[in-house]
Design a protein around this nucleic acid. Structure first.
Lengths: 249, 249
DNA sequence: CGGCACGTTGAAGTGACTCAATTCGCGTGG
DNA sequence: CCACGCGAATTGAGTCACTTCAACGTGCCG
C-alpha cells in the first residue's frame, strides 16, 4: 500500500465500507456508490439524543467513536434501553422507512458520529440492489439481536442475563476490532444496565458481584474484563449464532 | 368489477399484494413482478415447525389462514415465544438474508401458508427497488414490534403486560381486516401466553381474571373480546405508533 | 370410561423489589 | 487546601409479588 495522504472523507468512507462489508461483500461499483455519499460529522455529549421518539427520522448515523443506545420512554418516565451500539455500528438504518420514531437514540458517552441523510441514501439503494441488500441485512441482524434481548430479559435469571449481555458486547466488540484479548469497552453504568435488562440497580450490583466473585468477569472504569470465557458462556447459555457474524475462512 | 372467474393463483397473489401494500404503495410494475412469483401452498398442523433453529432458511412464508409464532428454545428446553403472526402476515422475510436460523417458527393452530423460495424472490427485488423497499419495511415494522416486546416484557407488571399484548393483537387484527368491532382471534393458550410474556402460567391465569373482573377484556375459545378499550389502553400504556400502520386519509 | 390438555385454585417459599443509608471518587468553589 | 455536592457503587433490611408445587375441575376425544 502506498502511503499517499488521504482526505478525511476517504477515511470516513473506508470505515463505513469496512462495516458494511462485515455484513455482506460489496462489488466495486457498490463501493464507489457508497463513497459518493455525502455526510456530516457530529459530536454528541453524553445523554444527548440523536433522534427522539415521535420525531420524523430523516437521517441515519454511523458511529465513528463512542456508544449510542436505543430506548423507549415508559409511562412513569423511566427509560427502557433496547439495544447498545458501539463504534463501527450503523444503528439507525432501522428508521430508514419509518415515518415516525417509535423510540429514541442517545449517546451514552461522548461520541463522534457520521450523519447521512435518507434522501441521499435512497437513490443509491435504488440503483445498487446489492448495497440495498447489505444494509437490509444489517437491520435483520439488529432484529435478531432484539429477539435475543426478548429472550434474555424474559427467560433468564439476573446473573445469567447480565452474563449473556456481556458475552454479546464482547463478541460484537471483537468483531468490530475494538476488543483486546480479554477486555472491551463497556459504556453503561449499573443503573443503565438495569434499565437495559429489566432489573433493579440493586440486583444488578449483586449479580455483578456474584460474577466477579466467581471469577467470570469484571466491570470497572467503563471496561469489561473477561476472566473465564468458557464458564461465562455456559452460565449465560450464550450462543453467538444470532449475531450472524461471517465466518473467517 | 366484473365477476370473472379467477384462478387460485390470482387469489393468492391478490392477498399477498394487499398485505404488502399495507406497508408501502406499489407501482403497477411492482405488482406485475410480484404476481409472477411462484409459490407452494402448505397446510401446517398445530405445533408443526415451518423452519427450525439451526437450519438454513431458503423460503419465506405468507399466512393465508391461521397463526404462526417465532420462538427460541432456551437452555432447559423451554420455549420463549418472540412474536405472534396472524393471517395476512409475512413473518419470514426476517430470514431472507440470514444463513442460519437463530430461532424457529411454528404453527399455533392449523394454518394454511404460502411458501416462496428465496431464490425466486431475490431476482424480483434486484429488479424492482420499490418492491424491495416494501418488503424491507415489513421487516422494520417487525423489528419495531420486537422492540416493544422487550419493553413490555421488561418494564410492565403482568396485568399491564398482558393488556398491552392484547391491545397489539387486536389492532393488528383490525388492520388486517380480521377483527370485528370488539373481538378478534387469539390463538394462544394461557401456557403459551406465559411463554410469550415471560411470566408463569399461574400469574397469567390470575392476571387474566383481574382483567376480566375489571371488565377490560375477556379471552375464551380462542377469541379475544375487548370490553373497555379506553381503559385497557390506559392500563397497558398502549400507543400504536410502533405498529407504523399507514393512516387512512 | 379413561386419558389428556387446558384452566383454575390454594398454599408455601423466595428472589427481586423498594427504601434507606453509607462509601467512594471526582470536580467545584469557598 | 478543604468543604461540599454529585453521581455511582455498595450494603442492609423488610416486604411482597411472582414462582413453584400440587391438586382439582372441565371438556373433548378415542
Amino acid at each position: 500500500m502506498a502511503n499517499a495522504p488521504r482526505k478525511q472523507s476517504d477515511i470516513v468512507h473506508d470505515h463505513l465500507l469496512k462495516t458494511v462489508e462485515r455484513y455482506m461483500p460489496l462489488t466495486l461499483a457498490d463501493e464507489t456508490a457508497l463513497r459518493s455519499l455525502k455526510y456530516q460529522i457530529r459530536v454528541l455529549e453524553p445523554q444527548e439524543d440523536v433522534v427522539s421518539q415521535g420525531e420524523r427520522p430523516d437521517v441515519s448515523v454511523y458511529i465513528m467513536n463512542g456508544a449510542l443506545a436505543r430506548y423507549h420512554t415508559v409511562a412513569n418516565g423511566d427509560r427502557q434501553f433496547l439495544s447498545l451500539h458501539i463504534s463501527k455500528d450503523l444503528p439507525d438504518v432501522q428508521a430508514l422507512f419509518l415515518k415516525i420514531m417509535d423510540h429514541s437514540v442517545c449517546a451514552l458517552i461522548q461520541s463522534e458520529i457520521v450523519v447521512f441523510r435518507h434522501e441521499a441514501i435512497l437513490p443509491l439503494l435504488t440503483k445498487r440492489p446489492n448495497l440495498c441488500f447489505a444494509l437490509w441485512r444489517i437491520t435483520l441482524v439488529d432484529a435478531a439481536i432484539f429477539r435475543q434481548a426478548i429472550t434474555n430479559n424474559s427467560a433468564r435469571p439476573p446473573e445469567a442475563r447480565i452474563a449473556h449481555f456481556c458475552c454479546e458486547i464482547f463478541v460484537r466488540s471483537r468483531d468490530a476490532g475494538l476488543a483486546s484479548e480479554d477486555s472491551c469497552g463497556f459504556p453503561l453504568t449499573q443503573t443503565q444496565l438495569g434499565q437495559m435488562l429489566g432489573v433493579s440497580i440493586v440486583t444488578v450490583n449483586r449479580a455483578l458481584q456474584g460474577l466477579r466473585s466467581k471469577r467470570l468477569l469484571d466491570v470497572r472504569d467503563g471496561q469489561l474484563f473477561i476472566k473465564n470465557w468458557r464458564s461465562l458462556v455456559r452460565l449465560a447459555s450464550f450462543d453467538d449464532t444470532y449475531l450472524h457474524i461471517a465466518q473467517e475462512s
